[in-house]
Computed example of a mutant assay.
Amino acid sequence: MASNVHLSKKHLVLKPRQASLLDIFRVPFSKDLESKHFVKSLRVKQAILERKGIIFLSVFLQKIIQFNEKPLSLFGSTFEMLLNLLGNKNNFGVFLSSLLRG
């Protein structure tokens, strides 16, 4: 199957990287959600667009995760490295001696 083939002709795409915090906090009070530059919808029922609370919460949480992207990545890499070191108990002494030798 080709990568550019869409499985659904109805979709709602939220782009939190393109939204500012002010834009996000305006979502619950907006009358026309489709006019926002970070919301792309194609043949979506108006009832879905009226669920502004869910859309607000989704974009807000994605924005928080994106804001903490680098610290979370650093923490994940460090945690994974520590788990790998602890998992290699047989070679830990060899690792320490290699580390001290440079």
Rank of each mutant, 00 (worst) to 15 (best):
K52T: 03
H6I: 04
S20C: 10
L82R: 15
I54C: 09
L57C: 05
K31A: 03
S73R: 15
S35N: 08
N84S: 09
K10I: 07
L21S: 07
L14H: 02
D32K: 15
R51V: 12
F92N: 00
L49N: 01
R17S: 14
L49D: 01
I24D: 00
V5L: 14
V27G: 00
G53C: 02
K52D: 01
M1R: 06
T78G: 07
K36M: 13
G93P: 00
I64T: 00
F92A: 08
L86Y: 11
F79H: 13
N90D: 13
P16Q: 06
Q46S: 08
I55C: 01
P16A: 10
N91E: 14
K31R: 13
V44Y: 00
F79W: 12
K70E: 12
L96F: 09
L86F: 12
M81G: 01
F92E: 02
K52M: 06
S8M: 10
N90Y: 11
H6S: 09
I65K: 14
L96V: 14
L72E: 09
E34H: 05
G93K: 05
F75R: 15
S30L: 13
L14D: 02
H6F: 11
S97R: 08
K36W: 04
R51C: 15
L21N: 08
F67R: 01
G87I: 01
L14A: 02
E50N: 15
F75L: 15
N4R: 06
L42E: 15
H6Y: 10
F79V: 10
H6L: 13
S3L: 14
I55P: 00
L82D: 03
L57I: 08
L57D: 02
K70P: 00
S73E: 15
F60I: 01
N90C: 04
F29T: 06
L21A: 11
L82Q: 10
V94I: 03
K70R: 13
H11W: 10
Q46N: 11
S41G: 03
Q66D: 14
L85T: 02
V27L: 15
I48W: 03
Q18D: 13
I48R: 04
I65E: 14
S73V: 11
G102H: 03
